Amino acid sequence: MRSRYGLALIAVRDDEMAASANGIDVFRVKISAFAGSAFIAGSLYTYYIFHVGPDSVFDLDWMLLPLMMTVVGGTGTLLGPILGAFVMYAVFDLARIVVPDYHPVISGLTIILAMLFLPNGLMRSFGGGVRVV
C-alpha cells in the first residue's frame, strides 16, 4: 500500500483530477488495476472449475458473487471481502439446502438488504478490520 503503485491507486480512488494534476496517468492505473484483478479472478476461477467455456464464464452467480462479497463485507478494508465471502457462501449454501427453488431470490434479497442496512459493509459498520488508507 505504500509503494508507488499503491499510492497511485489510492490517489486515483480518492480524486482522479487531483491525481492527474500530480502527474499520475489515471487511465494507465485504472487499466492495470482492472487487468490485474481480472487475471487473478480468472486464474482462481479456472483453477476452481478446471474448465473454461462460455457456459461457465457468463454464469450470473459467478459474475456477481465477487461484487456481492465485497459489498457485504465492506469496501476499503482488507478483511471485509473475506468476511463477505464467508457470509455469502453461508447464505447461498443455506438457501440451496432449505429452499432450492428460491435460491436466486434469497441471493438478491441478501444483497439488497446489505446495501440498505449496511451500506458500508459488515467490517466498516461495526468498526472492525484493517482500514486501507
Rank of each mutant, 00 (worst) to 15 (best):
Gly42Ile: 15
Ala19Glu: 10
Gly23Lys: 12
Ser43Pro: 14
Ala35Gln: 08
Met63Gln: 13
Asp59Gly: 13
Leu67Phe: 09
Arg28Gly: 12
Gly23Thr: 10
Tyr45Cys: 04
Ser20His: 13
Met68Gly: 03
Val52Cys: 09
Met68Asp: 00
Val72Ile: 09
Gly53Glu: 09
Asn22His: 12
Gly73Phe: 02
Thr46Met: 13
Ser56Gly: 14
Pro66Trp: 02
Tyr45Asp: 06
His51Glu: 07
Tyr48Gln: 10
Thr46Tyr: 15
Val26Gly: 05
Ile40Glu: 05
Asp25Pro: 03
Lys30Thr: 00
Val29Ser: 04
Thr70Gln: 01
Ile40Phe: 10
Thr70Cys: 01
Ile24Met: 03
Tyr45Asn: 05
Met17Leu: 15
Ser20Glu: 04
Arg28Trp: 07
Ile24Asp: 05
Tyr45Ala: 08
Arg28Pro: 11
Val71Arg: 05
Ala33Trp: 04
Asp25Phe: 04
Val72Lys: 00
Ser37Pro: 02
Val71Gln: 00
Phe34Ile: 14
Asp55Ile: 14
Ala41Phe: 07
Val72Pro: 01
Met17Ser: 12
Val72Arg: 01
Lys30His: 02
Leu65Asn: 04
Ala38Phe: 11
Tyr47Asn: 13
Asp61Met: 13
Phe50Ile: 15
Leu44Asn: 11
Leu65Ser: 03
Gly53Asp: 13
Ala21Met: 06
Phe27Gln: 12
Asp25Ser: 08
Gly53Thr: 11
Ser37Met: 05
Asp55Thr: 15
Leu60Gly: 08
Pro54Cys: 09
Ile24Ala: 02
Gly73Arg: 07
Ile31Val: 13
Ser56Arg: 12
Met68Lys: 01
Met68Pro: 00
